[in-house]
Each structure stands twice: as C-alpha cells, then as structure tokens.
Amino acid sequence: MDPLFFLLFAFITVACGVNVVLQKHPISSALSLVAVMASLAVLYLLLGAEFLAMAQMIVYAGAIMVLFVFVIMLLNAGTEATRGRSWTATIFGIPAILILIGALAYFMQTGMPQLGSVKFGDFRGGGAYQVGYALFTEYLLPFEVTSVLILIAIVGAIVLARKELD
C-alpha cells in the first residue's frame, strides 16, 4: 500500500506544483498550491509526522493560503499579461529544467545509497506530545526567538497597512 500512496500523492504534488507555475491566473495558482500542500500533508502522515501534517493543513493551507486568496480577491488582479516568449528560451529552457530535475533526482538516488526506507508506522515519534516536549525543552530558545519574529511581523504588517489610512 505504501508505494501506491506515495506514488499517487507524489504525482498529485508534482502535477499541481507544475500547475502553480503554468496557470495564468493567480487564483488558479493559489488553489493549485493548496492542493500541493494538502497532498504534502498526506505524505507527512506516511512519514509518521501526524502533528506536522495537521499543522501544515491548519497553518499553510488554512491560514497562509487563505491570506493569499484574500489579497488576490481584494486586488482583483486579472490574468498575467503574456509577453512574446523568445524561441531560444523555450527550446533550451524546458529541456534544461528537465535535465536539472533528472540530475537532482538521479544524484539523490545514487548519492545516498545507505538511506533506509519508509514504512507507515515505523516512526511514531511525530505526535503532538513528542513535538511539544522537544519544542519546550531542547528548542526553547528558537521558539522564543520565533515569537519575537512574529511580533515584529505583526507590527510591520500593521505599520504598512496604517500608512494606507493616513
């Protein structure tokens, strides 16, 4: 079952990822990205990261992407204006990307032969308890630093938005 699930959701991930780049309208891109994130969440579940899978859905798909969709709807941005693409770019670019992808996948495959394999249920350390315990013991300093970062982000966003009001 595992390889089937992996192949299915890997295919969805890659197809929707390509769709993010190819779609002309930002809303279509955003929704494809949501699909990428949802199928990545399933892959996280296969890897035993149940808490992260849910955090992915809540934070990424449920909050960040809603913000993107909100902004796209607010600006009512139309489709992207296409400019005449140069033939050389098309002729050389697409094969170059394919070669790059192939090379990366190949080196991943051959360069790390000592890597093990993933079977659902092998790793049970990804629950909320384990993640929370590590977060508040070993990684307490990064956690506090990110809280300051978020505070800065909030203040920054409010300052940027307030300038509009004046």
Binding site: M1, D2, A10, A105, M108, S117, K119
Partner: peptide
C-alpha cells in the same frame, strides 16, 4: 515489499 525508499521522498 511495501516500503518506499527515503531517497524517493528526497527526489520528490
């Protein structure tokens, strides 16, 4: 075998 190599995830 029913197990996916980790390298497949890295390739993805």
């Amino acid at each position: 075998q029913g197990a996916v190599p980790t390298s497949w995830y890295l390739a993805l």
